[in-house]
């Protein structure tokens, strides 16, 4: 593929943050700024001992997973988020994309921090060579990239949302799995920061996609919806192969696939569509779910529990001063 030159914004006006056309721009901007972090903040070296307890196969798998994630973050940082700037509806939206692009570079660099803490240069080089040679990994990057260089702004947003909210999860599974077994817990802390960022990115790009749909003809809306599901299927099939390729050696592929289904549903919801995978195949291992979010298990819910007693939430401090009680 010979990519065409990326289109740049054709007309630039100074951004006036005092005239807001879409309050989501400010809200998301503020959240992204407050979320800002650097890998140096996380004490990765505390994982050196834990790393040594992994078998050679497990170490190899972990390195491959992280090079795969590095590739996606690099793609999103250098091409994806940048390619959305010319299509921005508001100048503030452009600013949010520049923030997203920068954070993707921080994410990509974080994996290198993990590597340099835990592995030898030779191992790192081999893992990166694997990432260039793995057909499924290369294919997923190519599929997404082709839309970034294409000329349909809404399709670009679809591809971008599926990357942010779906394609990372075959990789994110592994550090959550290690964390659930009390391994590489500092690395998992860093990955959770990345996951939180991706949640805001997927939400925002998906929201802007839905804004873009407003006022379009029913035919065009139907075309874009079909297109979303087709692209999802294409990516999903490739993800399944990628998952087997990586995780068969440790027997985790089926567990990972449930996590993929669960996240595919959420990616579709970010674009405003209904979930596609039925609950029978989205029953993510509870250990993985609670590694992701300690509140995620059903026992917290009155409706799902035995229902014999009321569950009052755990005490939390509210610092907001506009409460009157």
């Amino acid at each position: 593929m010979t990519p065409e030159k990326l289109k740049l914004a054709s007309h630039v006006v100074a951004i006036n943050w005092n005239r807001i056309e879409d309050e989501k721009d400010v809200e998301v901007w503020n959240r992204l700024v407050n979320n800002f972090w650097l890998p140096e903040k996380v004490p990765l070296s505390n994982d050196i001992q834990s790393w040594a307890t992994l078998t050679p196969d497990e170490q190899l798998l972990t390195m491959r997973v992280f090079t795969g994630l590095t590739l996606l973050d690099t793609l999103q940082g250098t091409v994806g988020a940048v390619s959305l700037i010319p299509d921005a509806i508001t100048p503030h939206e452009e600013a949010v994309y520049t923030n997203i692009a920068f954070m993707e570079s921080v994410h990509a660099k974080s994996y290198s921090s993990i590597f340099s803490t835990l592995c030898s240069t030779k191992e790192i080089d081999e893992a990166f060579r694997w990432s260039v040679e793995n057909p499924n990994l290369q294919k997923k990057a190519q599929i997404i990239e082709s839309y970034y260089y294409g000329d349909d702004p809404l399709k670009r947003k679809i591809a971008s949302t599926l990357l942010e909210s779906f394609l990372f999860y075959s990789g994110f599974y592994l550090p959550m799995y290690w964390s659930s077994r009390a391994k590489l817990t500092n690395t998992a802390d860093l990955i959770r920061l990345i996951i939180r960022d991706e949640a805001v990115h997927g939400y925002y790009i998906g929201y802007k996609y839905q804004k873009g749909l407003e006022g379009l003809s029913e035919e065009r809306k139907a075309e874009l919806k079909d297109y979303t599901f087709e692209l999802m299927y294409e990516l999903y099939e490739n993800e399944v192969q990628y998952t087997h390729d990586l995780y068969d050696s440790v027997g985790l592929a089926e567990d990972v696939k449930k996590f993929l289904h669960y996240n595919a549903n959420k990616a579709l919801m970010n674009l405003g569509y209904e979930a596609m995978f039925p609950s029978a195949v989205t029953d993510v291992n509870p250990a993985i779910l609670s590694a992701l979010s300690p509140n995620a298990d059903e026992n917290h819910d009155f409706f799902s529990g035995s229902g014999s007693s009321y569950v009052i939430g755990k005490a939390v401090n509210t610092e907001d001063d506009d409460w009157d009680f």
Binding site: D301, F302, F303, S304, Y310, V311, I312, K314, V316, T318
Partner: peptide, 15 residues
Amino acid sequence: GDIISVKCQVPHLYR
């Protein structure tokens, strides 16, 4: 949901 559950002393029914 947790915050309101505590502040108003009502159950957090579902998430």
